[in-house]
């Protein structure tokens, strides 16, 4: 455990967020966010619901637009320039709470679609890559089924494989286990832990504190649209500094 926490982190900057603000109409949802993510870092973002953590990571691949400040992903600044947005999106994989697999396509087609159309990979190569990642998430036998025939845990692993097929350099996870039955959470977390061990840069919004302790090298706690506290997991859980963090931890770890 401790080993994973130290591994892989480099000095190279993957994501740089500076003085970023976002509003939904009049509502100030993200306030003065400053955050640097180095390549190889595994960051867990937690906080009460409505604290803006999902919005934050959705800003990183521009599913949400920020109104002020700067977000630089892999050296590309996110502006309204569609070229930059497409470039960032093809480098950044995202896994959603509700999987968002394409129900009209088979699992294999779900995995090969973006490589074929966006990366212009030949079909055969895309299929090979897809099968490689399906092996990795341990469900190669489901390749020809439709998403509706799979369990939630399997669907989420397919969704992870689908993102990986684009060979992203950064992965974003938006509450990947919140819609799953307890029995299925573990299989998804195992897949994510494996990914972390391979050195993937990950930002993960989750309430799975066990996962945070096992693989994160940094935990970010957010409340009311701002970063309240961040620290390495051991310190964060053992010695929370702010009252807000203490209250939150006592509520989720209380029973």
């Amino acid at each position: 455990m401790a080993k994973t926490a130290q591994m892989h982190v480099t000095d190279e900057v993957a994501i740089q967020i500076t003085a970023m603000n976002k509003w939904y109409g009049q509502f100030h949802v993200l306030r003065d966010i400053n955050m640097t993510v180095n390549r190889g870092e595994r960051i867990v973002v937690c906080g009460p619901s409505g604290s803006g953590k999902s919005t934050l990571i959705r800003c990183i691949n521009r599913l949400e637009e920020h109104q002020s400040g700067q977000i630089i992903v892999d050296g590309t600044e996110l502006t309204s320039d569609l070229k930059n947005i497409d470039k960032v999106r093809s480098e950044v994989g995202m896994v959603f709470q509700h999987f968002n697999l394409f129900p009209h396509l088979t699992i294999l087609e779900n995995l090969t679609l973006a490589p074929i159309w966006v990366r212009k990979v030949p079909k055969r190569e895309a299929v090979d890559t897809a099968m490689y990642f399906l092996e990795k998430v341990k469900i190669p036998e489901q390749a020809s089924k439709y998403p509706g025939q799979l369990s939630g845990g399997q669907q989420q692993r397919v969704a992870i494989a689908r993102s990986l097929c684009m060979r992203p350099r950064i992965m974003l996870f938006d509450e990947p286990t919140s819609a799953l039955d307890p029995e299925m959470i573990k299989e998804v977390l195992d897949t994510m832990i494996e990914l972390a061990e391979d050195g993937m840069t990950m930002i993960c919004v989750t309430h799975e504190m066990g996962f945070a302790q096992a693989v994160a090298n940094r935990v970010v706690f957010m409340d009311q649209g701002q970063i309240v506290e961040q620290n390495e997991p051991k310190e964060f859980f053992a010695n929370p500094k702010s009252d807000r963090t203490k209250l939150f931890l006592s509520q989720i770890l209380g029973h």
Partner: peptide, 15 residues
């Protein structure tokens, strides 16, 4: 259609 379909397509870089 759920909004997630468009979001997933966007996140994969489809134009």
């Amino acid at each position: 259609l759920p909004r997630g379909q468009q979001e997933a397509a966007d996140a994969l870089g489809l134009d």
